[in-house]
């Protein structure tokens, strides 16, 4: 109900108060990241650290830039003409936007799962094998495919017919196939862009369990418009909001349990309690 603009707020708490940096080692360190689509600025001055082997959720209303931020993390935004990024996105101390960095090398380590399940129109086996193959994997492909499918909790459902088209699977299975496809490259991080928005509640919960399982091995960053989902699966949550002229900003960031039981910023509280706008 109260959606006060930043400028109207008389006493803005200091930034550091709203950003609780996660403890332990981090996989990403963002420093003053701003991002433009052509002339339109989409992200403004975002700095945050993303912890290793944890689930970090990005939440916020539509148009707050959470997906844009996610796609900055593996240079997926490069594909869009006319984009520009300022600041640095450090991945294990390397700025992935430095001149000598190859985006293909970046994406090999930082996989991605998309909003709508997008398996290739090929067999289940080929779907999973593709990533390993293009990255020059020379070992036992069957073994790699099986391992990835098992990791994605899909093996038991598809093992007897790996030749079946990936498109013949149900929505939830397709999304897990996409996760298996990302895993086959053995990435360090998986970025998930609203991975359950096209799925029914049961399939959604399955993916969430899978996320909790995967995070023992790798780092996951998930964008979700479903706050409950962020609450359920993530260890850290970042709340974003489009500020003046629609520039996405990081409002509050900290351990999920704190953000959902005791948010420090009124706007965060309004959003997670459904009183926003």
């Amino acid at each position: 109900m109260t959606n006060t603009l930043a400028s109207e707020r008389a006493e803005q708490p200091p930034r550091s108060h709203l950003i609780i940096e996660p403890e332990g080692p981090s996989v990403f360190g963002l420093e003053n990241v701003s991002f433009w689509y052509g002339r339109k600025q989409a992200l403004g001055d975002i700095s945050m650290k993303i912890p290793v082997k944890r689930v970090t959720a990005l939440i916020g209303p539509s148009g707050c830039g959470k997906t844009t931020l996610l796609r900055c993390l593996n240079r997926m935004n490069d594909l869009i003409p006319g984009v520009r990024l300022e600041g640095s996105v450090n991945y294990h101390e390397h700025n992935i936007y430095a001149k000598d960095i190859d985006p293909v090398e970046v994406r090999r380590r930082i996989g991605m799962v998309f909003q709508k399940p997008n398996p290739f129109p090929k067999s289940i086996f080929e779907n999973v094998a593709f990533g390993a193959r293009v990255n020059g994997y020379k070992g036992d492909m069957r073994e790699r495919v099986e391992k990835s499918l098992r990791q994605a909790a899909l093996w038991d459902e598809v093992s007897d017919d790996l030749k079946k088209s990936g498109l013949a699977l149900s929505g939830g299975q397709q999304q897990r196939l996409c996760i298996a496809r990302a895993l086959a490259v053995q990435p360090d991080v998986i970025l998930m862009d609203e991975p359950c928005s096209a799925l029914d509640p049961i399939a959604t919960l399955k993916i969430e369990d899978l996320i909790r399982d995967l995070v023992k091995e790798l780092t996951i960053v998930i964008v979700t418009h479903n706050m409950q989902q962020a609450a359920r699966v993530s260890d850290y949550t970042a709340f974003m909001l489009a500020g003046v002229q629609g520039v996405g900003q990081l409002i509050e960031y900290g351990p999920t349990r704190e953000l959902f039981t005791n948010p420090r910023d009124q706007r965060t509280e309004d959003y997670i309690t459904g009183r926003f706008g």
Binding site: N74, M76, L79, V104, E105, R107, R108, R109, G111, M112, F114, K116, N118, P119, F120, P121, F130, G131, V134, N135, C178, R181, A182, A184, V185
Partner: peptide, 25 residues
């Protein structure tokens, strides 16, 4: 669909690998 290209690029395929394996077929 662009999602096909994204899926391919996201696993670390080059643009040519993406075109040859997915877009052209």
């Amino acid at each position: 669909p662009p999602s096909l290209r994204e899926g391919s690029l996201a696993v670390g395929a080059t643009q040519w690998q993406t075109v040859w394996s997915h877009v052209l077929p």
